[in-house]
């Protein structure tokens, strides 16, 4: 009985002492792409791409002409008219691909997505079907490929400055996203993401 009391008292004492083990986890080569990693410079980085595409996706879904139209519009989102005029070396597809995939998964029928970057692939298959080289497949024949109602455009620009004494570099980067009506040319939605970074470290983007 005395031993039991002792064990119970010890357990109570231990539980009273429990706190968060507030220490770092095991080191790994993986880093969280949504936050600043150990290699950081003044250019566009993974956390910027994740943040900007998430912001634009959510903002587009709040625009009635895109996110709440009576008939879901056909949209084209690719890098064809999304140009990089900044001093950052960047594959523009990283931004537009993430935006398209994120938006399509989130839209759930509120918009329809046209893969214009697959137009040649679709055209080749359609020709083979029409020539009778291959059969029709399960889907019914379409008169033509889908046309787009809206298409993404945009521009990345930057402004660089450098302190020759300290070697510190500062870069302001501005990324503009616009959705244009493919009949009238009207810009029905636009979004902007910008930031300025200053650093002395010599990071090379490849």
């Amino acid at each position: 009985m005395r031993r039991l009391t002792f064990v119970a008292a010890a357990a109570l004492l231990l539980s009273a002492c429990q706190t968060v083990q507030n220490t770092a986890g095991t080191p790994t080569t993986y880093v969280d792409p949504s936050t600043l990693g150990p290699v950081k410079g003044v250019g566009i980085e993974s956390q910027d791409i994740i943040s900007m595409t998430d912001q634009m996706m959510r903002d587009m879904l709040a625009e009635p002409r895109l996110g709440n139209a009576a008939t879901p519009p056909n949209v084209i989102i690719d890098a064809e008219y999304f140009v990089n005029e900044s001093s950052s070396r960047l594959n523009r597809n990283t931004i537009t691909d993430r935006l398209r995939v994120g938006l399509q998964r989130a839209a759930q029928g509120r918009m329809q997505f046209v893969g214009r970057h697959y137009a040649n692939m679709v055209d080749a298959e359609r020709k083979l079907k029409r020539q009778g080289v291959i059969d029709q497949g399960k889907n019914p024949a379409a008169a033509a490929q889908k046309g787009g109602d809206y298409r993404l455009g945009g521009r990345i620009t930057s402004l660089d400055s450098r302190d020759s004494k300290s070697g510190m570099t500062q870069r302001y980067t501005q990324i503009v996203f616009e959705m244009a009506d493919l009949e009238s040319g009207e810009i029905v939605w636009s979004g902007i993401y910008d930031f300025a970074k200053a650093a002395t470290d010599d990071v090379i983007y490849r």
């Binding site: 949504s34 936050t35 956390q47 943040s51 912001q55 959510r58 930031f195």
Partner: peptide, 8 residues
């Protein structure tokens, strides 16, 4: 839905 990205 998924948590939003960090916004500065």
């Amino acid at each position: 839905e998924q948590v939003s990205a960090w916004k500065r």
